[in-house]
Amino acid sequence: MNTGHEKLLCEDCHVPADGNLRQQFQANIQFLLGNRKQYSPVGFRSVSSRDCQQCHDRPTDKHPVSRFLEPRFSKARAKISPHQCMSCHKEHQGKRVTTVSQDYCSNCHQKLKLRKEKIDVHHVDLIKQKRWQTCLGCHDYHGNHRMKLKKRLKDIVNEQVIHEYFNGGNDPYSRNKIHKVKEITPNG
């Protein structure tokens, strides 16, 4: 299981699909005949971002998956699928973040200009130099850590440390989270 999911049970995420097996087969025959618009999952329904949000719903999420269903994010969707949790958090990998690249901010923030720069190397220059891997040195993607922003580029979290964090290592940002994850009870 991925980092933090060690105590989860299979059935916490893998929920039986609607109906019995026969109904599911019949529904899919109707789907093939064009009498039904949606395919019916057989056995278990697929796990979606909505399931993740049962525990990870954060009102202050800086990049909620729903935001990326807006039509204009089609290019970003084609490249990194930010509208699905599992694009970066593929389960059963024993990691925290399964995407390897740290430069995904480039898909949406090319035109970023800040009114007040608070770091010695300005964002606009970092973008010009295509140093996209530095973004995560100060900003956690979902914005769920309470932390002070660095004023000097040399003080930001190192790329390798973030890589280790992705792989399940220590949290380099802060232990102080804004929203805590909802614990699943034995009754769901």
């Binding site: 026969r22 019949q26 025959i29």
Partner: peptide, 15 residues
């Protein structure tokens, strides 16, 4: 028969 005839109640269709 299994798929069409003695069918249990069909799943609610979206159409």
């Amino acid at each position: 028969v299994y798929l069409f005839v003695t069918a249990p109640a069909p799943l609610q269709t979206d159409l």
